[in-house]
Write a protein that binds this DNA or RNA. Sequence first.
DNA 1: CAGTGGTCTAGACCACAAG
DNA 2: TTGTGGTCTAGACCACTGC
Lengths: 243, 243
Amino acid sequence: MKIKDQAVHLSQKAKEKIIEYIEQNHIQADEKLPSELELQKMLGVSRYTVREALTLLEQERIIYKIQGKGTYVTKRFIQIESGLEKLESTTEIISSFGYEPGTVWLDVSLEEPTPDMIKKLKLSQTDKVITFTRIRKANDDIAAFCIDTVPAQLLNNHVPQMDNVQSMFKFLEDSFNIEIQYAVTEIIPSLPTQEMLKELCIDKNKSVLLLHQIHFDKEGRPLIYSRDYFNSEIFRFKINRLK
Amino acid sequence: MKIKDQAVHLSQKAKEKIIEYIEQNHIQADEKLPSELELQKMLGVSRYTVREALTLLEQERIIYKIQGKGTYVTKRFIQIESGLEKLESTTEIISSFGYEPGTVWLDVSLEEPTPDMIKKLKLSQTDKVITFTRIRKANDDIAAFCIDTVPAQLLNNHVPQMDNVQSMFKFLEDSFNIEIQYAVTEIIPSLPTQEMLKELCIDKNKSVLLLHQIHFDKEGRPLIYSRDYFNSEIFRFKINRLK
DNA sequence: CAGTGGTCTAGACCACAAG
DNA sequence: TTGTGGTCTAGACCACTGC
């Protein structure tokens, strides 16, 4: 039996070799890396592969290039931690903050869509939607109040049993082979609503971060319209903004 | 005199040709594009160039690819409007919302850095900073209250005259050849501070979107630490989140 | 001028989807 | 098996930097 060829791409291996090289040779901030020609000899791969590896390192802000001069190591050899520009589920966000995610299910129901939902999910007049209402917990604290709406058609017009479900993304992927690819998110600073004051026991003088999100699949179909109220006591969101 | 070769890259031209092809042949959502082999024959370029063009189109969410099957047009043939993940100056943001940007200069002064600034701008103990305080306007409305702090050393320890300056980015670039490349931004929903209530005449029950940003150059040097309070009556920020 | 990164070509083989 | 996109090679010329 043959072991699968190239389980890991050469460019990925080359990238790791280059990181190794930087560490072993103690290349400091703003010091020059070997040229692409030298790297292809050192690593025994083509220039294309070297450039792919360097592109990966550049995206991670580990190196930068100057045309005509060379490739250099950035000031901070630090992994930039990912921010809101990276699409993650609320479950993943809570985990990445170092908390244990939990869910309190409040409601799952088949509904008529509002005009807003019809527009955002590109529904026809006869379509129904299913709305999921949850409180998300971080350890024992309330992290967020989440309302997700999906076209009922996607779930075969059947209200699912959600007791053990944590991540909506994972549920849709596992049960319906629906894969979310990207989202357009609107940031709305707001004060807690009446409902939240009751349900979330949030101080009415604390402001809350409301994210209105439309999630799309690879093909560009809108699949989930969600409104997430995050407790800004617990979450401080970051965004990495690139030119 | 010879006209400059390849002022526009072939891959860019190829991309435009493909868009033209999609439009002229009325290729609808989820319909298939010619294969890469066919495209290279049609466009008279190599496969590498075709793939570069397709990569550009994929990033703009105009097409999507499925390995083994082909390349398809996305549901909405619509330019995704850029959001906060794209680094723009406040001046550019105001313009892109369709307003005329304006600036009211409140203060420019040389100061001792706070411990927070020392940490965020990686200063040494003896370094000074220059802080710029402005009100930014969108037509005649108050758009934001902006406090920008830069290491004094960057400006040759000299407090500049800023009367006619709009964009800080452009000022640093033109006057000191300093180019901002990316920023790490923290989103902080907050209530207006005392100072803002006075200066901005903002209703104290309205919440405000506070962005704490650290701006870096290509090399990874922190250059500007800014605190921008945006009037959330006027601005609704979007983020495009990608997996 | 030589050396560097940026763009492009031609051709190869691999992995995946569908008949 | 065929056709597709994904990865990789070898080699070319261009654009920019600095001597």
